[in-house]
Design a protein around this nucleic acid. Structure first.
Lengths: 181, 181
DNA sequence: CAACGCTATGCAATTTTTTGCATATGACTT
DNA sequence: AAGTCATATGCAAAAAATTGCATAGCGTTG
């Protein structure tokens, strides 16, 4: 159950609504955590019941009310507890690779289209990450120090996305060659 | 529900027992699919009930009996159906990155240890993949053609693991620097 | 002015995954 | 002789994730 810890981590930096968290997961944290809104709202409810977080309602103009969540002391404790304990290795489940493995059953041109989509998606992600990196690099030294660890997670995104692109290009090159055979 | 398709894919190449599939997932397919034995046996049971696979018992000397599963025609159809339909993007959930993001709450030297473990694990994976690649490269042209697509999935592993190592080195360099500050 | 997308929240049913337990044989170690 | 590891299979309960549905106001686009 690590969505809990991902949420605690975000709230530790900044109080947020469920929707805010969703947006964070969809944008800059997309590389390392994904969760649906249903998952997030349910998790927040549980965590509130468990006393890890508090909330207050914030009314907005022209927009629905928000429930702004903040960490409680118990939440902060749970987070530092978790950070202190070693993780087991994360698991990888990549359906695209399964599909490629069984690719001889598919139409090669269709596979090629799917790989191009894959490449486009990762190019978009890489662009987003690079933009954030530029922002970081042009911030003050003080700010850079404060954000050093989040910056390293961003680096994971950049290095990882670049690897996706390199690989995708290899596959696309192969599939184009195969088409002409 | 893609464990189903991962299993169909493996069985399409070679009939296997649940235990064989587990070993495959743990070794060379570890990069793109992970599943526990409980999950695999349960899934095989469901798939058999759904008529996607058949099995026969194989007695062995000095070892327990095996249930060898093979694809039925319905299974083959289900697999090519799946391969023909586009996927939605896979999601990433990487707890180590969450942890690093919240790393200021942890002991830096402990974080460093964890990153070293991470690096070692990925180095091991990379070595395994490279060994398989060497094997592939020294096989006949005919074999290479037959295994072209699985080879591309292996390439994903190699490129991805190399990216892990590059990133881990960046982080380790940073954490070592931070320790001395 | 109808349709759609964005903000913002949530429930309920189902599916999938995890965790813990269970069994059995043979080989190797202490 | 007892303990552990590898092979080989599985059940059951609990936790987590997915899928489908629902509400509601505001702004934009056709």
């Amino acid at each position: 159950m690590s969505l809990k810890h991902a949420i605690l981590t975000l709230l530790e930096t900044e109080e947020s609504s469920g929707y805010d968290l969703l947006k964070q997961f969809q944008s800059r944290l997309g590389y390392f955590w994904n969760a649906s809104h249903q998952q997030i709202y349910a998790q927040l409810k549980t965590m509130h019941a468990d006393g890890l977080i508090d909330f207050h309602i914030e009314a907005q103009d022209n927009k629905p009310d928000k429930k702004i969540y903040t960490l409680t002391n118990a939440g902060r404790d749970a987070l530092s507890d978790w950070v202190r304990h070693p993780l087991k290795l994360g698991k990888v489940n990549d359906a695209l690779l399964v599909k490629l493995y069984a690719g001889h059953l598919a139409d090669q041109s269709q596979l090629l289209e799917e790989m191009k989509d894959y490449r486009d998606n990762h190019q978009r992600m890489l662009n987003t990450f690079r933009a954030i990196e530029d922002e970081y690099r042009s911030s003050t030294k003080k700010e850079q120090e404060n954000l050093a660890l989040p910056y390293l997670t961003l680096r994971r995104g950049i290095i990882g996305e670049q690897a996706c692109l390199d690989w995708a290009d290899e596959v696309i090159r192969f599939l184009k060659g195969a088409r002409s055979r």
